[in-house]
Design a protein around this nucleic acid. Structure first.
Lengths: 345, 345
DNA sequence: ATCAAAAATGTATGCGCATACATTGCGCTG
DNA sequence: CAGCGCAATGTATGCGCATACATTTTTGAT
């Protein structure tokens, strides 16, 4: 009998199963707790024979190590916490898949939460996450409250900021220059011969930065103002359609190019244009952002700005891992971006 | 000086910051550790005055409670772990957003991982997650290995299985009957006058169940075989296009209806059909699954099977919470489903 | 003013593990 | 065959907090 202090239980299953501990396993295998601990974390330091007996005991008892106790004792939680703006936006979640995978292979688990593009909730989440004593933390973007920066500094753990770059990262940042992307699209469209342009932008700080850089540059190049339709909230096909409709109904924009802050809204814009009988790109050209998987599959295939998300995931993960291993690492990684010319612009 | 055993650090920042503990905060506020603990978890049991002094001390020191130690001592981690097949599939992540939110409001944090539609990796993840001693666990689907069931039973925590129902849940399940959905769509399409039908299905156990129920029922009703194009892997617009192309190129299917296992592949199918000059729904009608946000926004608007995901999220969360509070609860929740008739079928 | 009850705080303890250090036994060199 | 070195295991301890219980202080009713 491992534990003898079972609670008095009702008929319904509460905590009936007395949790098995390393001591219980050891008792069964004829060794002490510390040998069981070693068998699990440093098997080379335990004899072949006891290793087998311990393994048998583990199987017999269904022992599951208590990582909570382990973390408290060792001061390493093997947790990496990650905060992303939205769980439902593939741009962020596809990154997370890569990132988690890479970390999992190195023994870390990812504690993921959604901030909702909201600084106040980010602050609260940072505190909650830090209370779990993660070994590292990943944040989206480079704008964080003073309170957040202070707490993170106090935690003394590696911090990676992604999707953007700055000369003064909290610790490490991996991303690209959003203004530069806006400028590049402006130049691309001007070079394609467009004299008029508009933008469709979601309420996202980075998207707004791309938009204003685009508008500023395109205005200089073409001497024409660049109307913007803000979708409010998050980008979606529906929001893109609505924004495109708004642009046509409330401005004299009938010919030119539209730079959308997301492939999703770009797709919506295309659907709206086609429904209204416009030709894409002959009447209105569309440029998206993000190179989501569907961008090449819609009709017409979407011209968009691509960032190497796979590389972003890998770099973010390996930066964290390197830092955790104590290796000095580069703290600002500029991934760059690429305009993928397809049919829509 | 809270801690006096700082490690010898290199030039680069390792763990320099000596972590502040409740004892440190207490010392500063002139009370003991336990009063600080109480101030945080049972503020009503601490006098107004000391409460204020403790708060000041917390602010001054930047104290962040150590939830790891708390969990070890109290045997409650305030963690709920959740395993979903894919982080990039909005169907699952939108559910998670609701679920996490609801739990967060009740003081729980969600530890989320992706299983990748893969039983082996699910087993491994279950063990890893259980090692963090979550207070409850959420799984997707009702098919789990014996080993997994055993471990979960041993953990003695509430377990919710979602997206499907069964008479023998591990503990609680919230979902709907996938076969019934397949049957309903078959009857719907037959009633609409279709004599021919095909399916486009992803490699997902539940999708396959809907598909086979659909095919079986439609065959009975129409006396015509139902060809299937498996997209392999996950549903996507690209996969839907390819599957639709395959269907047309490799069968004599030219007129009828197609039941897709996801709105995403349905959307792809529509794009492919239009690119080939087919009219939707006049030539070929399309039914999706999931009622994702874009379903109403594409052209033609997508007829699809809707499940109340919001309700799913709420029910899953509140079932867990109720069970954690010790309240006896219903263990099988059938959410049902609804065919939303729009333009595509 | 008195005393019991309630409020406020403190003391003692252990959760389950990792880690530093101590001990044992054994093969091997010279 | 003494003595050294290493492999294998054990002992002792504490991580930071929650909780049961003990003690002190305050309150209020008489």
């Amino acid at each position: 009998m491992p534990n003898d202090h079972k609670m008095a239980d009702g008929i319904f299953n509460k905590k009936v199963t007395s949790r098995v501990t390393m001591a219980d396993v050891g008792r069964l295998a004829g060794v002490t707790q510390v040998t069981v601990s070693r068998a699990l974390s440093h098997p080379d330091k335990v004899s072949k024979d006891t290793l087998r007996r311990i393994q048998d005991a583990i199987d017999a008892t269904g022992f599951v190590p208590n990582a909570v106790a382990g973390a408290l004792a060792s001061k390493r939680s093997n947790l990496v916490s990650a905060l992303i703006p939205s769980l439902t936006n593939v741009v962020y979640t596809s990154f997370m898949a890569t990132f988690s995978d890479h970390l999992r292979q190195n023994g870390y688990q990812v504690l993921l939460s959604e901030t909702g593009f909201n600084t106040a909730s980010e602050d609260a989440l940072i505190a909650t996450h830090l209370s779990r004593r993660p070994d590292a933390m990943l944040l989206t973007g480079i704008h964080h409250s003073d309170k957040a920066r202070k707490q993170l500094q106090g935690a003394g753990i590696p911090v990676v900021e992604i999707w953007d770059i700055t000369d003064e990262p909290i610790d490490i940042c991996v991303g690209f220059n959003h203004s530069a992307a806006g400028h590049a699209v402006a130049e691309y469209l001007k070079a394609k011969g467009h004299a008029f342009a508009a933008t469709i932008t979601a309420d996202d700080e980075r998207a707004l930065r791309r938009q204003s850089a685009f508008a500023e540059r395109f205005t200089v190049l073409s001497q024409n103002a660049v109307p913007d339709a803000n979708t409010g909230g998050t980008a979606s096909i529906g929001a893109g359609r609505a924004a495109m409709a708004h642009l046509i109904d409330h401005s004299d924009f009938r010919k030119g190019a539209v730079f959308c802050s997301s492939d999703l809204s770009a797709h919506g814009a295309i659907i709206e244009l086609r429904a209204r009988g416009f030709r894409v790109p002959q009447d209105i050209a569309i440029v998206g952002f993000g190179d989501q998987d569907f961008a090449r599959d819609i009709d017409p295939a979407l011209t968009t700005v691509a960032v190497d998300r796979l590389r972003l995931g890998h770099l973010a993960a390996s930066s964290v891992l390197d830092k955790l291993m104590g290796q000095p690492i580069k703290s600002v990684h500029d991934l760059g971006f690429k305009i993928l010319t397809r049919l829509s612009a």
